[in-house]
Write a protein that binds this DNA or RNA. Structure first.
Lengths: 252, 252
DNA sequence: CGTCACATTGACAGGCTTCAAACTGAGTGG
DNA sequence: CCACTCAGTTTGAAGCCTGTCAATGTGACG
């Protein structure tokens, strides 16, 4: 079930009219750059929620841009304990680390049904030779992902359960907002509590209790898979997180 | 005290005879590539232990290669809690994230006295245009750092105190070993227990007690600033960490 | 109406943090 | 040469935050 050719004209034509690229969150690109990417793009796949996009240890993983839906990167220990490293939202690059290091030290799983743009990893080197501007943007996106992970590491290493949840909620809220996915302080929040727990480094039970405590405290509410930030100020204060996301970023 | 011109011929000449580059840990480079780097290198600085190499929030941080000594990346919360994100050993790139994102979302501090090679950040773009091979290696090093952080995040999120310490010790041991810094299972281990605690996401007291427990258990010993891995097998088993570092990697 | 995944709640145990104090070794000045 | 200081290390005790175990509730689905 990993691939399902979409009912669209051709991948090449599709890139030039990419609706994601219209969003303010992304830098505009020159026609030449879009041409190159459209040429490089080898597929547009749909992947169902819960399916792997990249398997841990996979050696030939391609490079992806998440086109729609949510995904997450994770690592597991031998005994099954799982850590979710970070969440991926539309426009995020996936598989860069695996492409460059030639092996995936992590897995990537679709959190919701997703669509992805597929770029062959063997052409990444081409991109560095022919399109230095795009190569620079690839490196930029890699650094941005590292910055997000740094923040998660700070959270899990130093913040208590309450602060971690507030921090994660704020962070996802801001990223969704940048993509225009927030309406009236409310956005689709597709994580199960088990996934929340695995991302926060907490047990399921404690995650549930702290999550409930924060809802009762009026920080946010959750219903029908949508989260509403009722009290952004207080949530930010508890999270003690002041970093803003970047105004604009590259999109491959 | 940040800079101290070393008593060496010229930075340019120095690169071609770089002793670090001789090590097996690093890919060989073409003469043309070394020429480019020697030309790009703007300084060779000594920085004393405890001094900042990059300040949190700094906007104009240059790009560095750690030439000798140890350093670490960190983030702090408003109330002073500090998380050490990862440790940097000779050959590691520093400031890539800050150079690309134009602002340092983290700090970098010298753990021991260090020497660093300084490359101007305004020439990073040059490197992407003129030397795609080097640009690719820069991106590769960025991905490797992300991979190290992923492992730390897994550790802090999922492993208990005992496992975290075993994991950190093994990881640093392997990296030191790759650089030829290990003799007879023993290597310089310059971390204070407070720094250990900040890297592990544990309190100082609990770090001390667990550290002592593992020494008594015969995993490793520590004296005169040197750590000796007495029982690598057992340490690896407790760490439940099976990832190997890469055989070779780029050096700028 | 049973099944199944997921969410919720209660009780209890324990790993870890906090507080506090003593110890150690290196550097310093009398 | 010996107090003295100071940073870092070590140890003990008490308590809480978080994990584990166990059971119940809930909504979607066939």
């Amino acid at each position: 079930m990993l691939t399902n050719p979409p009912p669209r004209p051709s991948a090449h034509l599709w890139c030039h009219a990419c609706p994601l690229r219209q969003k303010q969150a992304f830098h505009p690109k020159s026609a030449e750059e879009v041409d190159f990417l459209a040429e490089m793009k080898m597929d547009h796949r749909r992947i169902a929620a819960g399916q792997e996009i990249i398997f841990p240890g996979q050696a030939d993983a391609e490079l992806f841009t998440l086109f729609s839906g949510w995904a997450f990167r994770y690592k597991v220990l031998a005994d099954g304990r799982r850590q979710i490293l970070n969440f991926l939202l539309p426009g995020d690059l996936m598989g860069l680390q695996a492409s460059l290091l030639s092996v995936a030290q992590h897995g990537i799983e679709a959190l919701t049904d997703v669509e992805v743009c597929v770029f062959p990893r063997r052409k990444v080197w081409d991109l560095f030779v022919k399109m230095p501007q795009l190569a620079y943007e690839v490196a930029w996106l890699g650094s941005r992902e590292e910055s997000l992970i740094d923040e998660n590491l700070l959270s899990i290493g130093q913040r208590n359960a309450t602060e971690r949840i507030a921090s994660l909620v704020i962070s996802l809220y801001r990223r969704a907002e940048a993509l225009g996915l927030v309406n009236d302080r409310s956005f689709v929040f597709p994580l199960s509590q088990q996934q929340l727990a695995d991302a926060l480094g907490l047990s399921l039970v404690h995650t549930n209790k702290t999550w409930a405590k924060l809802r009762r405290a009026g920080l946010f509410s959750f219903a029908q898979g949508r989260l509403t930030l009722e009290n952004p100020r207080l949530t930010e204060r508890i999270a003690a997180q002041y970093e803003r996301d970047f105004a604009q970023r590259p999109l491959l």
